[in-house]
Design a protein around this nucleic acid. Structure first.
Lengths: 173, 173
DNA sequence: AGGTGATTAGTCACACTTGACTATATACGT
DNA sequence: ACGTATATAGTCAAGTGTGACTAATCACCT
């Protein structure tokens, strides 16, 4: 949740905006960095507002319904820097999602498992290709490009591991 | 949540046991594969019991309070195999935890960021070493060893990425 | 026989997250 | 002028996950 707070504060730091814009930006540009959903963003905005890290001004545009425009407060900026520093020193400890299945692989015939892993391997290679093809560029967020490289590296690592695992299974008596 | 169901069904498939044993086994042997907490395990057991995938028999031992012993049902075994197959073909899509901070790194002085990343690098190397040193061995769950290798590979990948990133930051005008 | 700490066994209130829903405004074709 | 599709802006019920708590038993010392 700290990560998500950091994200919202970071976006509001560069520009005041309302919930919709924030969610839109995340969906369009940061889908590879965060999977926060709209409803979560709104509820976080509400919480951050209540705790004084951001403040809302009601904007009346024509005869539209009123919208809230959120801006970061000084307290919010402080929190932003604190969370940013925390995030930068934080070790990534992966719990790869699919590894519980790997634990129980002996419950299926070896050849069937090899088939599934090959399927997974192919899908992962496709996904990797989609990252390699599209050179990303989020205007003022240079760091995003580094995260894309990060994920490419992780996919390659996963692919190597799968190949090695399949090889080893094949070699089993 | 499917992953967690798979884990519980898998453990009950090899042996009927109560909630405490399940949680204990996860904490002791599978801390590197799942981070499911005790309360979650109990609530899952309850749900799986209600939906007929497992069944509970009350065990009265001496004058202790009664405990529930859970066993997998035929429906549960079917579900187990279904989830296992799903898990094996499922692509891992990493959203590395710390990458939101990376996105905003330009908000801090370059040298400060390099300092933090070096700290993170050192911590990750330590963690990697702890995985490399202790040769793991979970008796009847041979697949666990493969997951350990998986995580070692991911740590190495992360380390490479950090080194590369730090290098690039250093090289910036 | 009494105290202390670990082990066994489990519950519960609370926080977080999201799918599905509401509702207005704007664009655009016909 | 009218439908209808899309963008804008947000809410809410329901599900998931867990820290903190309760409570009995056991091991061991003194």
């Amino acid at each position: 949740m700290d990560e998500r707070t950091l994200l919202i504060l970071g976006l509001l730091k560069s520009q005041s905006q309302h919930g919709y814009q924030i969610n839109d930006f995340i969906e369009r540009n940061l889908g590879r960095v965060s999977d926060m959903k709209k409803a979560t963003a709104y509820s976080l905005l509400k919480k951050l507002n209540e705790s004084g890290l951001i403040e809302a001004t009601t904007e009346q545009g024509g005869n539209r319904p009123a919208k809230q425009v959120y801006s970061i407060t000084p307290a919010g900026e402080e929190k932003f820097y604190k969370l940013l520093r925390m995030s930068l020193v934080q070790v990534n400890d992966y719990l790869p999602h699919g590894d519980i299945g790997i634990c129980f692989m002996d419950q299926l015939p070896k050849d069937e498992v090899i088939g599934y892993l090959n399927e997974r391997l192919a899908k992962t290679e496709e996904l990797l290709a989609s990252y390699e093809d599209v050179p990303p560029h989020v205007e003022h967020l240079h760091g995003v490009n580094l995260t894309i490289r990060h994920r490419i590296a992780l996919f390659r690592c996963d692919i190597e591991w799968m190949k090695q695992t399949i090889e080893e299974l094949r070699a089993r008596s």
